[in-house]
Design a protein around this nucleic acid. Structure first.
Lengths: 109, 109
DNA sequence: TTATTGCCATAGGTAGACTATGTCAATTGT
DNA sequence: ACAATTGACATAGTCTACCTATGGCAATAA
């Protein structure tokens, strides 16, 4: 099954939502989770994910802490901040608004 | 009512669909039509529209012809090619596939 | 006659996702 | 014991494509 690119602008939304759902995850888990919950359609490349997480740290949407995984490897664990939770709400409503609009355009006969 | 940016990658889809619907339009009409049929949510900036139309000409999705509007002004009229029609089908199915995937991710509790 | 609207166009900025590459440690395979 | 694989993070550089800002020019309106 072929996988698609993440539409620019939606990666924050996907990451924020995933963290809201699971609480605390490291980067690798975030990527896998998005891939799974999208039924393998969305593939988050590492070269997209880690820069995005850095930007989100700077924006104050998440905090990070180094830890150790179940498999005994070091990993950076991310958690939503209050600002991140707020941002998620904004991203969701924007997504719905815009996607609804596009759908209206392409569904009209 | 606030308007939103066009999500990168969807402008071609919107233009192609609009041309498929109305046949022959000039740029200004395309922009206005998208704005209207999206209930004023999507605003296509001229600085986005005309470069996009140029790219679509190069890709062979549309042809252009100079003419005169009802208001007696010169305008460039665009029409879909067969390749453009094919491309529209691709864009629509990609859009549905990816948007469905994102919706699955953000709707899961 | 000046302002506004219709219509096209381009230059330059910017965001953000991609590919390619690298590191380093733990596990698995031989 | 050593090699290969996997897990996990990171960055540099490229590219697409949308934006803002700007400009021109002709037709109509004030």
């Amino acid at each position: 099954m072929q996988r698609d690119e993440i539409p620019p602008g939606t990666l924050y939304l996907l990451i924020l939502k995933t963290l809201a759902r699971y609480g605390v995850l490291h980067g690798y888990e975030i990527a896998n989770s998005i891939q799974q919950s999208s039924d393998e359609v969305l593939q988050v490349e590492e070269g997209s994910l880690y820069p995005a997480l850095q930007r989100m740290l700077i924006k104050g949407w998440v905090t990070a802490e180094w830890g150790v995984t179940a498999g005994n490897r070091r990993a950076r664990y991310y958690k939503l901040t209050a600002a991140g939770r707020k941002r998620l709400a904004v991203e969701v409503s924007q997504f719905e608004r815009v996607m609804g609009a596009i759908t209206r355009v392409i569904q009209t006969t």
